[in-house]
Simulated scan of single mutants.
Amino acid sequence: MNPELDLRDVYAASAGRLVARLYGMTGDYAEAQDAVQEAFARALTRPAGLRGMDNPEAWLYRVAMNIARSRHRRRMLFDRIARSGRLRGSDTAPPLSPDHVALVAALQRLPRATRETVVLHHIADLPVAAVATILGCSVESVKTRLVRGRRALAEHLRETEKEDTRA
């Protein structure tokens, strides 16, 4: 990376893509935005280290994913407590289209590695080689995950469609 490059330039170039990737992974746009913002906040604490990286966007993605995973774990714990009756849960998310809900639900049923690969390639529109670099795996692994992911998504969406026609 260019040592003259400012974190503001990195933000302008990659924040939108990072939010899109995280949104595909989490299914929650606000959570995706928060995780990306937190990743950039952490980058502010080490701007020289970020400038020295070959691919700062990949580092930011990994940090944002780790943040999203940690928040998910905390949310699951909170939900368990809320279901126990000790707290009341609240649903503050706006209503989503049935197609959107079905796609996000189908994505969530995929194994994590496959879901990350599908989101990066199909939602973030990254080439296979870039996905391999970000995920730290081979191009062949990415291609295999994509084939498996597309098959699984198609099956999950068919199941959802069948359930909808029965109801």
Rank of each mutant, 00 (worst) to 15 (best):
A102S: 13
A154N: 08
I67A: 00
P127F: 02
D54H: 11
E57R: 09
R151F: 05
D6H: 15
A132K: 08
L153A: 07
D79G: 14
V147H: 13
E140C: 00
A64W: 04
S70H: 10
R71H: 11
L157M: 09
Y61I: 02
D99Y: 07
L50G: 02
S138W: 06
A105K: 07
I123G: 01
R86W: 06
I67F: 00
D164I: 08
F78V: 12
G136A: 08
L87D: 00
L44E: 08
A105D: 14
S84G: 15
V139D: 15
R17D: 11
G27R: 03
D125T: 02
M65C: 10
R21M: 13
E161W: 10
A43T: 06
E38I: 08
L22I: 01
V118Y: 02
M25T: 05
K143M: 10
L18V: 02
L7F: 10
L135H: 08
Y29W: 07
T133D: 13
M1S: 14
A132G: 12
M65Y: 14
L77K: 11
A129Y: 02
R42L: 11
L153E: 07
M1R: 10
L110H: 06
R151S: 11
A35V: 03
A12H: 08
V36I: 04
K162G: 00
A82Q: 07
T133W: 02
L126P: 03
V10P: 05
L50A: 12
R112P: 01
N55A: 10
Q33T: 07
P56D: 09
A15F: 13
K162R: 14
P111R: 09
L157T: 02
A35M: 04
A35G: 04
R75T: 09
G85M: 11
L60R: 06
R115N: 05
R83P: 03
T160R: 13
D54V: 09
H72C: 03
T144C: 02
W59G: 01
